[in-house]
């Protein structure tokens, strides 16, 4: 691409979506939702040996307002579920979620009355990591999966600029065009 570049060196043509996705995927700031033993592995992932900084996620934010990836690491009880949901709601869009370990994915070995059998009953999960607890490399892999997911996202730049009302208008317009097409047929 650079060889045919009409602007000489130092220029690169791309789409706004691609560059938005690139920026987002390489600076995913995690919100550590460490609830039990999985949190230790999550810290190991952030430590020097596994070094999540290589993927741009070294900044563990203790404030949900500044983070865009929630790692739910550990057993979620019914009482804690409300707290997890509240923190999730406080995170700004766009946001992603990793269910780390068997407990947060499915309740794990705690098939009993106080434990929620999977956090996907109340928040949308992007990647599930199996293991009890999963190794730090497995969580790194989950992070890379999310990066991959972000890189394939369409209209991310447009969605970031438009408000919800604008998006709704776009949706209506698209529906109208669809109807026209159907009528033409």
């Amino acid at each position: 691409m650079l060889q045919n570049n009409p602007f000489a060196d130092g220029f690169l043509t791309t789409t706004m979506d691609a560059i938005t996705n690139w920026a987002r995927s390489n600076a995913l700031w995690p919100m550590p939702m460490g609830l039990s033993c999985c949190a230790i592995e999550m810290m190991a992932m952030a430590g020097p040996k596994y070094d999540v900084a290589r993927f741009g996620s070294e900044v563990f934010r203790m404030s949900p307002r500044q983070s865009d990836l929630m790692i739910v690491a550990g057993t979620v009880t019914y009482k804690m579920a409300h707290v997890v949901k509240k923190i999730w709601d406080q995170m700004p869009e766009p946001k992603w979620c990793i269910a780390m370990g068997a407990c947060s994915s499915s309740g794990g070995m705690f098939r009993s009355y106080p434990v929620v059998q999977g956090i996907d009953q109340f928040i949308p999960v992007d990647v599930y990591v199996p293991g009890c607890p999963p190794r730090p490399d497995a969580v790194l892999h989950a992070l890379m999966d999310i990066q991959e997911k972000i890189k394939h996202q369409r209209h991310s730049f447009r969605d970031a600029l438009l408000s919800e009302e604008g998006l709704a208008k776009l949706e209506q317009q698209r529906e109208r065009e669809q109807e026209k097409l159907v009528l033409q047929k």
Binding site: Y78, Y113, P114, V116
Partner: peptide, 17 residues
């Protein structure tokens, strides 16, 4: 052992997955 279904409310899943 598994509890009584619906006895403890969960937060609502409002965002469409």
């Amino acid at each position: 052992l598994i509890g009584v279904p619906g006895s403890i409310p969960l937060p609502e899943f409002d965002k469409k997955a």
